[in-house]
């Protein structure tokens, strides 16, 4: 009896083309007035034996129809979801809503790298005023008034006794006045000299450093600065020390590193020499130590200084210092 329904169901199932067709077919067979439901109801007219057998058959048929209809329905459901999602599609090639990080200024970036190297070596960071007393900027550093050494630094004056600091060395004096050795610190900051062209800016950044203790030698100065340069420019960078003059150090040295642009072969930037001047340094002049009340027989120390603009310009191949202060974002974004 149930076989009479199975074939027509299968035939009808073939012509189902939508979710609603499938639902209708399900109702037609399994609904309250459905064909299968009617047969289930008619079971009561049969004898108990017949009923058991027929009941089993109808039940199987019911489960079969149910499963087939569900299968069909889920196929159509998936198709419909696909169609809906497709209609919600967006152009994924349009750019995202721009939310890039800002770019750190190349000078800050360079300054940060330099500070990090020295703090890893145990140097602390000290600061001092940018508008400074002549006394700290010059006199205490063994640069008296009317001395030709003042020509080494073209100075901006606020008054006869107040200048825009020409280097961060006055920080060294201020710290030494207030503390006793051992000392190991760097003093980063802005400095000023009245000079302006492609390689000079009236304001620029320096990092100077000082180490004072009982047994500090020139060989230590070499060790610390070679370590610094190798960390900043790479382990193979050639370094040379040659004598120079700074009123506040004795002996004084100028430190050159192999030109990173031409790999020491000689180019325009290194004026064909293959060397680039990168640091000034020396053993602290005993007169400077005496000026701050240290006994130069007991303590010795070394000091060094470098220009951050020069390092940044070398690292990033920037050929005009003015670019660093123009703040053109097309320039600044190159360092993000």
């Amino acid at each position: 009896m149930s076989d009479d329904l199975k074939q027509p169901f299968l035939d009808e199932l073939k012509s189902v083309t939508s979710l609603s067709d499938a639902a209708a077919l399900k109702v037609k067979y399994l609904g309250k007035k459905g064909l299968v439901t009617a047969q289930i109801k008619s079971l009561s007219t049969l004898s108990p034996d017949e009923r058991k057998q027929a009941g089993q058959q109808i039940n199987e048929l019911k489960q079969f129809i149910e499963a087939e209809c569900d299968k069909k329905e889920s196929v159509f459901k998936n198709d419909e979801l696909k169609i809906r999602l497709l209609s919600e599609s967006i152009d994924i090639t349009l750019p995202g809503k721009f939310a890039a990080f800002g770019s750190e200024h190349p000078l800050s970036k360079t300054l940060g790298e330099v500070i990090d190297i020295f703090t890893r070596m145990g140097f602390s960071v000290e600061e001092g005023p940018e508008v400074e007393l002549d006394q700290y900027n010059f006199e205490a550093l063994n640069i008296p008034k009317d001395h030709p050494a003042r020509d080494m630094q073209d100075t901006f004056y606020v008054s006869d006794d107040i200048v825009l600091r020409t280097h961060t060395s006055p920080v060294q004096v201020r710290v030494m006045e207030n503390r006793k050795p051992p000392l190991r610190f760097i003093a980063p900051g802005k400095v000023y000299r009245c000079d302006a062209d492609v390689t000079h800016s009236p304001m620029f950044h320096q990092v100077e450093g000082l180490m004072v203790d009982k047994d500090i030698k020139f060989s230590h100065l070499k060790g610390v600065l070679i370590t610094f340069l190798r960390q900043l420019f790479g382990p193979d960078i050639p370094v040379r020390f040659r004598p120079s003059f700074f009123p506040f150090t004795e002996p004084s040295a100028e430190i050159d590193m192999g030109c990173i642009l031409c790999k020491s072969a000689g180019c325009r930037v290194c004026k064909g020499s293959g060397w680039l001047e990168i640091l000034g340094a020396g053993m602290v002049n005993p007169k400077v130590l005496e000026n701050v009340g240290y006994d130069p027989e007991e303590y010795t120390g070394f000091a060094f200084g470098m220009g951050i603009e020069r390092i940044a310009m070398l690292k990033y191949s920037i050929d005009d210092i003015r670019l660093l202060f123009e703040n053109d974002i097309r320039f600044l974004r190159q360092f993000s």
Partner: peptide
């Protein structure tokens, strides 16, 4: 001392790291 150093040659002076206590005094 500077005269001795420069005529002896800065490059002939060894480079060494100072023996020192750890940490800064900041």
């Amino acid at each position: 001392i500077e005269e001795v150093a420069r005529l002896y040659g800065y490059d002939n002076i060894p480079a060494e790291l100072p023996e020192t206590c750890l940490g800064g005094d900041q």
